[in-house]
Design a protein around this nucleic acid. Structure first.
Lengths: 111, 111
DNA sequence: GTGATACTAAAGTTCACGCTTGACTACTCC
DNA sequence: GGAGTAGTCAAGCGTGAACTTTAGTATCAC
């Protein structure tokens, strides 16, 4: 219903194993779409659709020279996912800390 | 075709916005499934299906007491996703470093 | 016991997503 | 120019996933 945030789009993109495989290859080297056809065992059109999703959410960028479009990872996109995860972890740790404080207070009142 | 790894399962789970909403709430406080019915606007059965996915991949854990099953975040699950992301970022940075080294070598031979 | 709550399990529906196909454009090389 | 390559676009197909519904079990409160 509500418009998807960039975090939504990034996690949606990362949710597909083929797209993660693309990112794994691209984090080693930039490459054109056609280079992914054989390793992924899929048509060029299929590959391109994945690349569009990855580019739309900022996980990769691409530049067309002549007839070949070269794509490369955009680390900033990954850090959006990173941020969401570490926020959840931080929240959980804050909760544990608060719990510990509560227990300490009980100890003190016990004295 | 090949069996999904835990990383696959974690990212698949995180790919759904409803499941991320569940994790956001649970990182503040543990809660039973029924507590999510109203905020998510969905039947209990639907909520439980999401919780099963989250538990199967290790993102949450649950314990049943009486008739209520209380769930809480399992930070270890999140760190699996974290690891994958930082590996990609590290790979990309290594690539940039190698590129920089190459340029430096060229500079030296220019002297 | 009765009724309400909290969950479980199975089956059915619906719709979005991943992928292919086919037709097209643009560039490169002979 | 012609042949082959790289990519784009639109349409369509099939499957899986996110729900719901229905029916059941177990627990709590009275």
């Amino acid at each position: 219903m509500r418009a998807p945030t960039q975090t939504d789009r990034v996690f949606d993109a990362l949710g597909d194993p083929t797209r993660r495989a693309i990112l794994e290859r691209m984090s080693k080297d930039p490459m054109p779409a056609s280079a992914l056809v054989k390793p992924l065992g899929m048509t060029l059109a299929g590959v391109v659709q994945h690349l569009q999703v990855l580019e739309a959410c900022g996980l990769i960028s691409s530049k067309k020279e002549g007839r070949v479009r070269t794509c490369q990872i955009q680390p900033k996109g990954l850090s959006i996912a990173m941020k969401w995860i570490s926020e959840r972890q931080a929240q959980w740790e804050r909760r544990l800390d608060a719990l510990a404080d509560l227990l300490n207070e009980d100890d003190e009142t016990d004295d």
